[in-house]
Nucleic acid binder design. Structure first.
Lengths: 202, 202
DNA sequence: TTACTTTCTTAACAATTGTCAATGAAAAGC
DNA sequence: GCTTTTCATTGACAATTGTTAAGAAAGTAA
């Protein structure tokens, strides 16, 4: 059991290493220096990574598991904003960049292993390894393109087409996230999603 | 008239200069070297900056005027995806990053003056001025935070609240963009936006 | 100015979604 | 095993939005 965990961590460490290596030509020592700053955090199901009211002062690389970004409406409903899976970087930029209180929660959807890095440590790394700026820029470019596409989906498709799009392009979301969270993520009520699914199966 | 235009260009040039200066400590020579690579382009109303089917191979800084990102639905309707105003950088990242054909159009909403830079020139600048990576990263961070917020609005607010949000946070859009474009931007039909406006005024 | 085009509003009806309440199924805890 | 909780589905009705078509208002050009 001990060995299994060590294997798992070793494997996961290499994943983050690959992530960094593919985006800039760091030397092995540089990559090790960067990775050594990350801290491993294990969270149970439904544990919080970021709570509304607190400042998002770190980023996390998802080694294993999944997380849900959610916002509580004035009526008290929880609305899913986004999801994160293995290989994703997690933070709430609106809070992170301006050091202001977050209006969203980020909680685990299942037991998860994260590699975290504080904002201070990240900025130290930018200072120490200027090539990191490129890694940061490339990750942000990909993230921006992805989320912009997501917003376009909302503007151009109706509810059923959004669900079909999710089935086609993000089946892992439907497999791993409870359906009522998928519904609010699509901007509709769980009952409406049930109806859409029923219509599709006939 | 000649003088007026020169004044205008000089003024506008300094705007882009400020944009660069505030995000990294470039020397005056560096800023001049960077800015000299931009080309000034004047477009009339409803002229195209990017057409669907073509690759987005340049970025543009909006010196004056406004532009509309739009997508044509399978039914042939034009849907506004985003708008750009003075001070914004314009490109379609999905196409720009992967050199694939764009599925959206970017056209001027009014006569506009743009400062354009080709992808090749931009990457040369990243190479020549490593500090540019930081400028790029910072612009992307702001852009990502902004567009992520926009998507959250879609997921958490109903149509009326989205319109009220736009009134409060982006009144310039309502002042300068035709209402039927604002409607599709909000994900609704122009007739629905009219109804919402009528309900609000009673 | 007049004529023309574009944009915005209105109304009636159809279609979709939300709301509320009840039931069934699946998962979690004991 | 059982019980309890959570989640998904269904149906009836209300509320909202889409559709279609018409006309009013605003903007453009001759």
């Amino acid at each position: 059991m001990q060995f299994l965990e060590v294997d798992l961590l070793t494997l996961s460490m290499e994943t983050l290493r690959d992530e960094l290596l593919t985006r800039a030509n760091f030397s092995d020592e540089e990559v090790s220096g960067i990775i050594s700053k990350f801290k491993t955090v294990s969270l149970d199901k439904k544990e919080s990574f970021l709570s509304a009211g607190k400042v998002s002062d770190s980023i996390a690389y998802v080694e294993k598991g999944s997380l849900i970004y959610s916002q509580t409406s004035p009526e008290g409903d929880d609305i899913a904003i986004d999801f994160a899976f293995e290989g994703d970087f997690v933070t709430y930029l609106n809070s992170f960049l301006s050091d202001t209180a977050s209006d969203i929660d980020i909680t685990t959807n299942e037991p998860s292993i994260l590699k975290t890095l504080s904002k201070t440590e990240l900025y130290d790394l930018y200072q120490k390894y200027p090539k990191m700026e490129r890694t940061g820029r490339l990750l942000l470019e990909e993230g921006l393109a992805k989320i912009a596409k997501g917003r376009t989906i909302f503007q151009t498709m109706d509810n059923q087409d959004r669900y079909l799009f999710l089935m086609k392009h993000s089946p892992h979301i439907l497999q791993r996230i409870p359906q009522y969270h998928v519904a609010t993520y699509l901007g509709i009520k769980p009952e409406s999603l049930s109806r859409i699914r029923r219509n599709l199966s006939t």
